[in-house]
């Protein structure tokens, strides 16, 4: 190790990250949970506070396109990276809905709706990775999202419909 190099440094007071395409600098503790940064610092309440130990998936967001639990992710881990929340899923230019959101509406993929933002994030990640998933792949992808209304039938239908909608939209493009 080079003793003269100023490499051992505590985190800078501000952490810069990209949230839904916007560059933001957050000045708070680097070990603060991303969930609280989003909800309390950035006033984005789409990611829900629930179990807070990574079990329920209500706070799911995409970090560099991959789903992570915002309650387990610390702010410093997001430095320089892109975070996509449920508020950033829909195409900004058209003002419409993402096919996954549309499918949840069409198929009744929600009851109380508390788990829905997390479900939609997980499904979006799944379909971006595997456009036509098997039942097994759907089960695995949603294994970290819990619906206490037990509305899984509608949710699984929504995944299938979202897959169809995405295929239609890509063939139209």
């Amino acid at each position: 190790m080079n003793e003269n190099r100023a490499a051992e440094r505590p985190a800078a007071p501000g952490t810069e990250l990209y949230v839904n395409g916007n560059r933001v600098t957050v000045c708070t503790e680097p070990s603060k949970r991303l969930l609280h940064v989003l909800r309390d610092e950035l006033q984005m309440t789409g990611a829900k506070r629930s179990c807070e130990i990574g079990r329920c998936g209500a706070c799911m967001v995409l970090l560099d396109g991959r789903p992570v639990n915002a309650c387990l992710t610390m702010l410093y881990q997001c430095g320089g990276r892109t975070v996509t929340t449920i508020e950033g899923i829909a195409p900004q230019e058209s003002g419409g809905l993402d096919p996954v959101q549309q499918a949840f509406l069409e198929e009744g993929g929600y009851q109380c709706g508390y788990c829905t933002p997390g479900m939609i994030i997980s499904v979006k990640a799944l379909l971006d990775f595997i456009p036509d998933p098997t039942d097994e792949e759907i089960t695995e992808a949603l294994s970290g999202n819990i619906c206490r209304c037990t509305g899984y039938g509608g949710i699984i239908r929504s995944v299938r419909r979202a897959s169809e909608l995405k295929k239609i939209s890509s063939s139209d493009a």
């Binding site: 990574g54 799911m60 991959r66 992570v68 639990n69 387990l72 990640a125 695995e140 970290g144 999202n145």
Partner: peptide
Amino acid sequence: CRVIAAPSVRNL
């Protein structure tokens, strides 16, 4: 690795 936690945890 496939059966530890869920995909979102395994990504971290």
